[in-house]
Simulated scan of single mutants.
Amino acid sequence: MDWLQVVILAVVQGLTEFLPISSSAHLILVPVLTPWDDQGLAFDVALHLGSLTAVVLYFRQAIWQMVTSALAAVRGEQVDDDARLGLWVILATIPVCVIGFLTRDLIADHMRSTLIIGMSLIGFGLLLGYVDWRKSGERSEYQLRLKDVLIIGGAQALALIPGTSRSGITITAALMVGMSREGAARFSFLLSIPVIVLAGGLEVVSIIREPEEIQWIAMLAGTLLSGMSAYLCIHYFLVVIKKLGMQPFVIYRVLLGAWLLWFFHG
């Protein structure tokens, strides 16, 4: 890997992991649109480690509160909002884990095409735009109900389709059940933590089974760049949606999807 490839892949991963524009679509497209060889699973793990570190650092106080409150609840103390939020994160992660395990080979072999990516970018992008335009609610992540969590968790499983965007579909579902834009985004970011951990774990297992040459310097640089860009992305995304909503990202998705369909299938 050359350094330009390292930088571009790391920044793309860091920015698109949390924006509602599909990180998988962009990482699939980079080798399609460039002469570079596939970066390999080990480098993918490094990029996801950077994104994971960023979201954990950004929400470290909320995570600490969830963990301490959950431990207190286990000891028999009252279940408070923080402990309940931690439970909601776990419950909303179950559907994507189960469906992802059952359909992993199907998705990897048959769904990573520019046709599916383009259609998903447009279709789910328009859905996000409609839900956001219709008017978001006022509830925060601490005011979720079990029914809301099941809907958001079920929607997250759709992110297994390349081009859907995990953050995009979870934010869409959260807005549909009456959450505010900021609350929807924060809950989506918290949901990313177990998903990234589990996805990275599967990739590590694959690497152990089929060892590949590891470029340690490139991986370290990719982790740092991915983490830095992801941290900045989370911060400024929460600022932007307060003023502009989701529409700029919807426009980007539709334009990118339309270009993919025209360029590869027109």
Rank of each mutant, 00 (worst) to 15 (best):
residue 178 G to K: 06
residue 34 T to P: 02
residue 194 P to R: 04
residue 34 T to Y: 12
residue 88 W to Q: 10
residue 103 T to F: 13
residue 197 V to G: 03
residue 1 M to I: 00
residue 36 W to Q: 06
residue 226 S to G: 14
residue 105 D to M: 09
residue 159 A to R: 01
residue 252 Y to T: 09
residue 85 L to R: 03
residue 264 F to W: 03
residue 199 A to P: 08
residue 88 W to S: 12
residue 166 R to H: 11
residue 134 R to Y: 11
residue 8 I to G: 09
residue 24 S to D: 10
residue 103 T to Q: 08
residue 194 P to E: 07
residue 114 T to S: 13
residue 126 L to E: 06
residue 229 S to P: 03
residue 195 V to F: 00
residue 119 M to W: 11
residue 52 L to S: 06
residue 150 L to P: 00
residue 103 T to M: 12
residue 58 Y to P: 06
residue 6 V to P: 00
residue 85 L to Q: 06
residue 23 S to T: 00
residue 41 L to D: 11
residue 4 L to F: 14
residue 208 I to H: 08
residue 196 I to A: 03
residue 44 D to F: 02
residue 236 Y to W: 14
residue 44 D to V: 10
residue 133 W to E: 14
residue 118 G to K: 02
residue 56 V to H: 00
residue 149 V to Q: 01
residue 108 A to M: 10
residue 81 D to W: 02
residue 198 L to E: 03
residue 241 I to K: 00
residue 83 A to W: 10
residue 254 V to F: 02
residue 13 Q to A: 01
residue 170 T to C: 12
residue 8 I to R: 10
residue 67 V to K: 00
residue 180 S to Y: 09
residue 115 L to A: 11
residue 177 V to D: 05
residue 45 V to G: 00
residue 49 L to G: 15
residue 41 L to M: 13
residue 168 G to W: 06
residue 217 I to E: 08
residue 211 P to S: 07
residue 19 L to F: 01
residue 142 Y to H: 15
residue 241 I to F: 02
residue 87 L to V: 15
residue 90 I to W: 03
residue 114 T to P: 10
residue 66 M to Y: 01
residue 106 L to D: 04
residue 46 A to L: 04
residue 148 D to V: 05
residue 8 I to C: 12
residue 199 A to N: 09
residue 170 T to V: 04
residue 240 V to S: 04
residue 51 S to T: 04
